[in-house]
Nucleic acid binder design. Structure first.
Lengths: 144, 144
DNA sequence: AACCAGTTTAGAACAATTCAAAAGAGATTC
DNA sequence: GAATCTCTTTTGAATTGTTCTAAACTGGTT
């Protein structure tokens, strides 16, 4: 994942289309464009609003509703992870591997912490009939 | 904290008033009533809406705006902890000690995990100029 | 080219939360 | 105990982030 070769523009569009298709989603103009923005370079953290703006700036006309739909579909398909760090605003992370985050409360910025770094031990067994879905760790930081 | 003796009704009101005053807040009827509901028995997790309803049922007339204000003031005063587990709804926890949570995604229920149970190690140093405010661990669980 | 199911769109609807202005109530002073 | 001052509460409107809806559109197939 982190050892990802940079792709040329055309090559990128192809892999992007394939990615959408592989997720079982019809490769529409909008989904390909959004996937293009999301999976272009390194790992990213976006909000729906931010991605919507970014698409607009890139000259792609997509409605906000579609951005929301697409982010959720990608998440469901395992292409994105939803990160909850703030009630009132949903973040989506292109890094789908096991890892954690620094959250800068001041400006809402998210920073990845590689998955091998932090270790969480002694997570107790959940109540009868329940199973652990995932363990989220958020390190909230502020100006020193 | 957990070895808290149960208080009689009157005694409870007194300690409640004192608690509000000690937090540097004027002990108004509303704040005392809400503190009364919050710090009555064991640890609790509430949303603003839930506490508002609860107050109504208890015959206390408080506006929703005041519930929000009060929850935030109590949080700022260190009487409550805000727990972020769901974008779209804020939880407040009367347990202000170091501890973590199970979060039942299905119904939005929060369950305390005692502070000594889970251990998180190797939290990396935050970026230059930043300091760790706190480390939140949420164990998301679902029906097995 | 025609067709259908799946998509997108704009705008309305919604839910949680905050804001603003006016009325109300602790605390303090006389 | 009334006047007063400041902090609080209230109501209802405003905001924000997100979802819904119905109609228009489009990718894929025939």
């Amino acid at each position: 994942m982190s050892a990802m070769r940079k792709k040329s523009g055309k090559e990128h569009m192809e892999t992007t289309g394939a990615k959408v298709r592989a997720a079982g989603l019809r490769p529409t103009r909008q989904r390909i464009a959004l996937a293009g923005l999301l999976f272009r370079n390194e790992d990213r953290h976006v909000t729906a609003e931010a991605l919507h703006e970014e698409a607009a700036k890139a000259g792609v006309r997509v409605s906000l509703a579609t951005v929301y739909n697409t982010l959720h579909q990608f998440t469901q398909a395992g292409l994105l992870n939803e990160v909850v760090v703030d009630s009132g605003c949903a973040y989506f992370d292109t890094n789908i591997g096991e890892h954690q985050h620094f959250y800068v409360e001041e400006n809402g910025e998210l920073i990845d912490i590689p998955g091998e770094t932090i270790s969480v031990s002694n997570v107790p067994a959940p109540p009868k009939g329940m199973a652990v879905d995932r363990v989220d760790v958020v390190v909230r930081i502020k100006r020193a």
